[in-house]
Design a binder for these strands. Structure first.
Lengths: 340, 340
DNA sequence: ATGAAAGCGCTAACAC
DNA sequence: GTGTTAGCGCTTTCAT
């Protein structure tokens, strides 16, 4: 089994072109000096033989393969029919793939090894991008121990100042949304947050608490697992709207939660946005297609992914570029759920 | 630049454990025979040194790295804000990643090289999965020429019987949907199709034409690019509904198109499904969250991806397993748009 | 401008 | 049960 593929080697090309392997190598890499005519002969021979340089052998010398791993947390729950953060993740993965390719790297999807030795596949990666690292991430610990370059997209809540994590600026973004809710008439703003122990949830909560405190309002926080999606949002809405003094505005961390809260409000005959304003911290299919559409933050994963790939690739290549400062690019997309 | 990472080698471990490199290799791979006590000593030394076997050097011997490439067509259009087939693709990619990992492979996202030499990143892949291959696919030609294992997910319309393409059974699936539209009261069934020259569109069209012909109905086909999404669907709906004898049922190839057609019908005051029945050939966020929700085919990308990975991995390993026969797993999810 | 030779880190024969 | 040896396909000094 597993008969070795009978590809032409650099030796075959060399023989056919009547030169040495070295010359072939030079002709392809641009290193050294090769006469234009010789280069032509080599290229010709290579084409005839269908020669493709072996990336593995090449990698052996540089101990790099040109593969970046993208560790995707929501990839894992096998039982989940739908994925959380579909939009965001897919846009991120696509942008990261394209950015990586432009840099000469491939992007490999890697499930969270969760401390397992199923991490064998990760061995071929030169470095890792970790989306939504969680507090004291075991994967981060492992990569740190093995001295493998990595970059968290989102800070480790437990290590605020680490150079290994990209700050998303969640606090500032959330504050902007809350200000918008207030500007559109919200006076009692509640928050529906997720449960994963990552920067996004932690900082959103802190920002919300600071915001209500500054306005002498009381805080109302409901938590629902990200994976519970729209149904979780409805449940959260039911909980909020049956309070003695219900909110007139709700900040929802995820787009799905927002859609659920909205549906619950409408089911109760509330007018949106007159009776209740709703905004989400993440744009998604749900916020766009809800009735009415929901104001949401477009997190702009594309520039984020490009930045992340650039930083990681630099590190893989041994050049530490400083992390960009300030909150990630983003845009509050104002829709009918807060606009009247 | 690019200082070689100073990882411990198998030699370092061997020295520290007082054995030979071979023994270390055996201790890790399980090949050969190693005394339990020796193995312990080796493992201990490896742990102390933070040794991780080098996947590249290992791959050099087997000339395989354990990486499968997933060529994703909709990955490419950089200008598109939203992706077509988001749901389907993401579910496919996730399932393929997990299936690959279970098999000991990683899954690398690869943009369509489109005949370019940007394909360097593809060099590390042991084989490729090509989603939605198009007619006379240039990538397919290239891989065939280079003798690189690959598997198209969806047939090449130009090569019906090739063993290199998984048949999705589109014709049969579409026929089921059309039958359902008729059963729910549709008498004049129109079709809104996409424009990509792949099996999905070609076979859907053929199936539709055969179906109306068998019922002595006249065919009404409107084509809209997949990328035009919901807006394209609305335009298609406008075109259909302003006809002298408008359809009372519409089969839409994509979920986005279906949502647009539905919106257009509702904007004209048509009752769904009393006046107009709508069904989609692909389930998506749009079909699920439309008002009312739209009947759609869940293409079940998960089992498809698992099958595709299994077949491809076999081929990479030199064992040609026969392609499964019959249409891919799927389920017609009947929703209010056809159910009254 | 070109080539010979020495590995990169690992595994597979084959001795012992 | 363990070690020796010989490469995998390529790049890279360093001669010529």
């Amino acid at each position: 089994m597993a008969r070795k593929r009978d590809r032409a080697t650099i030796q075959d090309v060399a023989r056919r072109a009547g030169v040495s392997a070295t010359t072939v190598s030079h002709a392809f890499s641009g290193n050294g000096t090769v006469a234009a005519e010789t280069r032509e002969r080599v290229r010709e021979a290579a084409r005839e033989l269908g020669y493709r340089p072996d990336a593995i052998a090449r990698g052996l010398r540089s101990s790099r393969l040109g593969v970046l791993g993208l560790v995707v947390r929501p990839l894992d729950p096998l039982d989940a029919t739908f994925l959380e953060g579909v939009d965001y993740f897919l846009r991120f993965a696509r942008a990261a793939t394209l950015a990586a390719v432009e840099r000469g790297y491939g992007l490999m999807l890697v499930p969270d090894p969760a401390g397992a030795d199923a991490f064998a596949v990760g061995l071929v990666c030169d470095g890792f991008l970790i989306t939504e690292p969680v507090e004291d991430d075991p994967l981060v610990a492992m990569l740190t121990r093995d001295r493998v370059p990595f970059l968290g997209v989102g800070r480790d809540p437990a290590r605020p100042a680490s150079e290994d994590f990209l700050d998303l600026g969640t606090a500032q973004i959330v504050t902007e949304v809350l200000d918008h809710l207030a500007a559109s008439g919200g006076t009692r703003v509640a928050a529906v947050l997720g449960t994963a122990p990552n920067e996004w949830n932690r900082d959103a909560e802190a920002a919300y608490l600071a915001w209500v405190a500054a306005r002498n309002q009381s805080s109302v926080i409901v938590r629902r697992a990200e994976i519970d999606g729209e149904a979780g949002g409805r449940a959260a809405g039911a909980e909020l709207f049956s309070r003695p003094s219900p909110p007139d505005a709700v900040y929802c961390q995820t787009g799905r939660h927002a859609a659920g809260v909205l549906a619950e409000a409408r089911a109760r005959g509330w007018a949106v946005p007159q009776d209740i304003r709703i905004a989400a911290g993440e744009d998604s299919e749900q916020t766009r297609s809800a009735v009415p559409p929901v104001t949401a933050v477009d997190l702009r994963p594309e520039p984020l992914a490009r930045t992340a790939v650039a930083v990681l690739a630099d590190r893989v290549e041994g050049a530490d570029r400083p992390l960009p400062a300030g909150p990630a690019d983003h845009e509050l997309v104002i829709r009918a759920s807060t606009r009247g």
